[in-house]
Nucleic acid binder design. Sequence first.
RNA 1: GCCCGGAUGGUGGAAUCGGUAGACACGAAGGACUUAAAAUCCUUUGGCCAUUGCGGCUGUGCGGGUUCAAGUCCCGCUCCGGGUACCA
Length: 928
Amino acid sequence: MDYNFREIEKKWQNQWVKDKTYEVKVDNSKPKFYVLDMFPYPSGAGLHVGHPLGYIASDIYSRYKRLKGFNVLHPMGYDSYGLPAEQYAIQTGQHPAVTTEKNINRYREQLDKIGFSYDWSREVRTCEPNYYKWTQWAFIQMFNHYYDFERQCARPISELVEKFEREDAEWKSLTEAQKSERLMQYRIAYLADTKVNWCPALGTVLANDEVSEGLSVRGGFPVEQKVMRQWSLRVSAYAERLLRGLETVDWTESLKETQRNWIGRSEGAEMYFPVKDKDVELEIFTTRADTVFGVTFMVLAPESQYVDMITTAEQRGAVDEYLAMVKKRTERERISDRRVTGVFTGAYAINPLTKAEIPVYVSDYVLAGYGTGAIMAVPAHDSRDYAFAKHFDLPIIPLIEGADVSEESYDAKEGKVINSGFLNGMEVKAAIAEMKRYITENGLGRVKVNYRLRDAIFSRQRYWGEPFPVYYKEGVTCVLDESKLPLLLPEIKEFKPTADGRPPLGHAENWVTEEGYPIELNTMPGFAGSSAYYLRYMDPHNTEALVGKEADEYWRQVDLYVGGTEHATGHLIYSRFWNKFLYDLGLVCEEEPYKKLVNQGMIQGRSNFVYRFIGKGATGNLFISYNLINNPEYKDCTQPIHVDVNIVNNDILDINAFRAWNPEYKDAQFVFADGSSTLDADNPYLGKPSEQQYICGYAVEKMSKSMYNVVNPDNVVEKYGADTLRLYEMFLGPLEQSKPWDTKGIDGVSRFLRKMWKLYADDNGWIIDNAEPTPEMMKALHKTIEKVAWDIENFSFNTTIPAFMVCVNELTSLKCHSRKVLEPLAVIIAPYAPHLAEELWHACGNTTTVCDAKFPEVDKKWLVEDTVKQPVAINGKVKDTIDIAAGASQADVREAAFTALSKKGLMEGKNIVKEIIIPGKMVNFVVK
RNA sequence: GCCCGGAUGGUGGAAUCGGUAGACACGAAGGACUUAAAAUCCUUUGGCCAUUGCGGCUGUGCGGGUUCAAGUCCCGCUCCGGGUACCA
């Protein structure tokens, strides 16, 4: 009876569906555990072997927890709104809903083959009305709330209106439109003129985390800065709580650090610098209050409102010219060109401490979006100010004893302060504190905490996203009544922006409310739908609420979240923000959505190359084996060409498949690894001699179609089976580590599963008996139980597989066919290889599913060793190994060790200085 | 530049609390079975030396240090990967 994985896997997958094995319900009699994968965007390319890595890990964990008696919620769904489907629609006219549906079906088909324990009855799709209803609903709540900084939580905007009516005389005289505009400054979802990242190629704005180095993350198109009226979410209001919350979650230190940097809290002071002859005070932010005595000039961001206010008539022309130049530059140009530029405004500010008159400049090294958009420049102790001062020949005053500022600035916050009046002689840190006290007391400024974290731009000029439940009524921005949700995405014929430059929804007919008011044309960004999906899984069919009270109070939060690090500054910030907002409203009971987070590494592609001979005027397709390309005969005469990894096996090229792969290569000729060639008249390629191999080169690259290195999990499942794929992906290396996909070792894993099968079955059928197991067998089993449990709980899945291999080898050599060993063995391997485990579990005579078995407890009595081999060393050098009885006393161990060494004549005439005796581990005699 | 990781055989990687480095797997070499191949099984496999003396030396990127004992801890480098970037 052979291990027919195709038949077994299909059989059990069908059975699980039929029995609804993985469906879960709220069950207060059991402890809950919520395991979540970051749901995928269903792209047209389908899944490659990299995608399932995290899914397999979380599936192992889920299955393990279930065996341990937990009620495990393990759902899956699709982040199905997004750019690629829309770009595809623009090119082909194919409706994004159609492409998305097709891609989802393909994903599902691929996922099903791998044997995951998802509860598919809870599937969510962000593009479905009964899902995005709740995205729109949350938006309405954000619109209707403001952030109360004193109480540090979101409050209904009606409270603010009441307050204005009570306390603000002006309020009553405002028109409805003016009131609306004023409230926008407080709402958590608000409309404002914002400087945005505009991507002309995509025709939309992008959030900060969607832009990298001046290019869009999706597509890599240039991005420019533009002021537009856009919806934003006041994420920055939650900066402090987002930062503090990190202390309460079990994430990797590096990921928390990335978020801390992104939030970018810095403590400093805000100060005012009066402008000479003008009724203007420049407000600046600094973390180096101690350096005020060294301020020799000031700089404004080009977008700063101060620029207009203080520029003198003589300098007006030069300033306008500079502003025009800055405006023309794209974000990318600004980043790549770091030359010092700037212009004098003609105005002078007064240093509030030295009373010196200092010039005010405009330069784009000062950012409008951070602090106040204006800085006090301290060239001696800030490298950017230093470069500016050198360029414009401005004075540089050193403020720290011994700092040499003739060549570069001294940026470190240490040393003794000089040239600074009452601060002289203090250490920098003390001086900062002293100056903060001074400016507060003298009304020169105040202590202030600044954050780098920006509000999230929430509008996209796209079609394939959630429509805003927003309409415009005579200059007043309104949200729809909740009862009108969902606001369905209208059908349109063209997915491009309109001819007059409005977003695609401008094509929609009758895009107005019942009363005829126009509805918002923008749609929500990708992160809208993914921000609260984990809550919806808890209660996916609830029509009354995003998540019902009972479901929320039972499932609470995600206990284990598995996904890639690429979401560190996007999804994982937005999602935490969204959850905190809902928490403030009393709608969810946990403030942090993800308790533990594990990042799986990326699976990179391993590309293969063939080497075409191009030197010496060669024409046609002659390929040289990789091991020969550096031979003098071929050196520098070959050109590497990507070859499809699916026709290469262990770097050996399948010649015939290669000739068939691309018509261009149908007459390809080869020089083989041994130097023989298909061109040799007496040595024609016959198709199989093993020494006549063509060896390909390789490189580790991103897995992508254009590199021909994409490996599809379906092919692996077809060839080796789902259980082998699952085991092998784990065996590849530590979960968090990035590694290239390489099928070299997959045979070993596949062999192991066949060996395991043979423990239960031979040619005639099952060979399981009821014999009483020997202590050796029990030891092999319990050693493995202990190891498997430890490994899974510590996410060390890669080291479990060797433990299984050793166990099966031991049981094989012990000829163990006892049910009392094989049955628990099937259970402990079930998280890793569920199909095989299910088959073996039933072979042991069970009729229920292995998923409902109990994970066996370790019986330590089998693990106690009678004797322990223990090294004995002299001066740390191991000289001998002794057998000692388990639990032997320190004195006994010493005696045995000394006798053993004496017998070898090693202790003769030695003077023992010190003895280190650790029973069971090590004995060391230190001698002279 | 700054922040965070990492570096162990031909390869992927083990070593969980400072206690015999190289588990397990791949690859390679040799052998058994076979007309042959596949599959399967057995042996060897960090390096150097000795292999009729069963062992010796060396060894975890480099240089120091702590310790009876260091892949593991400390200090200083080199290289590689990731994040971030005029954040005042």
